[in-house]
Design a protein around this nucleic acid. Structure first.
Lengths: 347, 347
DNA sequence: TTGAAAGCGCTAACAG
DNA sequence: CTGTTAGCGCTTTCAA
């Protein structure tokens, strides 16, 4: 069997030095046409391919991006992961996955492990880093960008939707729809997405002289959200909200199920439900959820941008903090007021 | 800023040789209590952690597992990925993701790229390898295990559900339920899962002296499945199936939506629908899909097992080919015949 | 443009 | 048990 073919073997076969071979396979290097030809031929015959790890050792660039993610059952994340991986692959990078589920302190451990791989950059999704560990990355010269989370601190890069504006628009939409008892089911209170969406939502209500009619916490989890819905809606009709903003789609699905099948309510006739993310199932007709679209492709593009500019031009790179506009996607889970239409032609 | 701390620096500070430091951080190595202590202390103070890449170079073990996956929108895969990553992480390995979506020949390219990283093993999901590339892995001494796909060829490892038995049980279940016009919506015909599920299903029908009433191809894709459903069900009532097995849950969701919202049919009153995978949304009440559960945790455990035994004992390791029993999960999308009950207490 | 030589940070014999 | 000595496969000066 073939086993590893080294550049030295290729060199011998091509009748050139080992460094010549290296040059041929190094993007910005110089070699005569003749050499290139000989080397390529020999390499082909031997089935030679450069060892990325060896290259990483000497060049200091591993072309590996570490991804820290806590869960994949919010289907916004698999979607983003797929796009991210594809995009990076195109630029010659690859994604090393680190699940940060389990324990709490666990996540610091995980980042240490990432660093051990000499990754060129880190993107975090659905998790927050301790400032301690953030500094460790900084010290190691490894850029970090937070995906879908605002992270405090100087020099931190992150990419999110404009959650505040999104929450606000949702409030206006619901008010315009003639809803009188508008409620909110919150996500995990430690998350910036939760915080900003709620703040925006409250702001929108307040501007119309309204207040939240009810509020429960769903923690971004299916079961907890279901319980929240029950507490909120299993009450006498006069205390029952006629509209609810659920902080993300993942919870909204569970809430809709509970409303319809647990409590026998009709959506949107009895209650309007709106979510946030536009996770793929939101467009499934069983849910047909009106929601704010987080544009995964745009968000990922910005993330990759920020990452690569830090990696490839560490000097001039400045921390990037973007909040991408999230368009409202009108579907059937909420009454649509006169004069509202989709921002763009969409499902 | 700290920058890289090397074992040499630790050695100097601890007053020992560099190799002593290495030993302290190498699992199966020997060092006196005193040395260990001194080294650990120095390392701690300096914030030293071994460079995995350098270790990989000399040891030949990168502790990286390459994962090739084509898509993540069948939600069985994110679930599996999460489990896989967690399980490997526990054993000191990590997952490097390679999306093999785009082009067709693309997948060979992708595997080449994987090999460049000197991965210790490869798991493929939702893709097939050309025998060419399979051999290249073999030659490179990199074990491959196919997840959720049977792959022909000697010495190939794979882990699947018992798709044939599952298909067969579904046929029996539907027949027992008194269904008269039983149809099938196929997945991508190149997939072993598709092939085996259909074969089993047909076998079950045949044993009862029955035949498929209708068949369409959904290709494992949402839109295609929806079209298939329309072709199959948008017909005069006497030509309309009263039960359909959709080759996987991902398609089944689209089919159910089309039946209910596109054609105004009732599930299961007008049509019973069953799927395969028990992807998480199958238990969402909007679908409440009767399906065969692919036990992701078991499948992953077997995969990891096979992989690690090949990596850690290349000599004694024999190709593992397992077909794990898939239990029938009874829910509300299909009439339940007398005498049928869930294999296990489940949702 | 090319080859020789010096490492990247680490593990693994090999003596002691 | 410990230090010394070779490299792993590659990129990168440095002279030629």
């Amino acid at each position: 069997m073939a086993e590893k073919v080294t550049s030295l073997q290729v060199a011998e076969r091509a009748g050139v030095s080992q460094s010549a071979v290296s040059r041929v396979f190094t993007p910005g290097a110089s070699a005569s046409k003749k050499t290139v030809e000989k080397v390529r031929k020999a390499a082909e015959e031997l089935g030679y391919r450069p060892n990325v790890l060896a290259r990483a050792m000497v060049s200091g660039k591993s072309r590996i991006i570490g991804l820290v993610v806590a869960y994949l059952d919010n289907y916004f994340y698999p979607e983003a992961l797929e796009i991210l991986s594809n995009e990076l692959q195109e630029k010659g990078y690859h994604v090393l996955v680190f699940m940060a589920s389990q324990t709490a302190g666990n996540i610091d451990t995980v980042v240490e492990e990432i660093l051990d791989y000499q990754v060129d950059g880190i993107v975090t999704a659905s998790v927050a880093l301790s400032s301690d560990i953030s500094q460790r990355c900084q010290a190691a010269g490894v850029p970090v960008v937070h995906f879908n989370r605002v992270q405090e601190g100087a020099g931190v890069s992150y990419v999110t939707s404009d959650n505040f504006a999104g929450g606000k628009e949702l409030a206006e939409f619901l008010i315009d729809g003639g809803h009188q008892r508008i409620a909110y089911i919150a996500g995990w209170e430690g998350a910036s997405t939760q915080r900003d969406r709620e703040a925006g939502f409250r702001k929108g209500l307040q501007q119309a002289g309204r207040d939240l009619f009810a509020r429960e916490v769903g923690n971004f989890q299916t079961e907890t959200a279901r319980d929240a819905a029950r507490r909120m809606f299993d009450v006498p009709v006069e205390r029952r909200p006629d509209a609810v903003f659920v902080a993300n789609d993942h919870m909204a699905f569970a809430v809709m199920d509970e409303l319809r099948f647990g409590l026998g309510l009709k959506v949107p006739e009895d209650v309007s439900v709106v979510g946030f993310d536009d996770a793929p199932p939101a467009s499934w007709r069983a849910y047909d959820l009106t929601t704010m679209r987080q544009r995964a492709n745009l968000m990922v593009a910005e993330t990759v941008d920020a990452l690569l500019s830090h990696i490839e031009t560490p000097a001039s790179a400045t921390p990037k903090q973007s909040a991408i506009h999230a368009p409202l996607i009108l579907r059937g889970s909420a009454r649509v007021p006169e004069g509202w239409a989709n921002d763009k032609g969409t499902t």
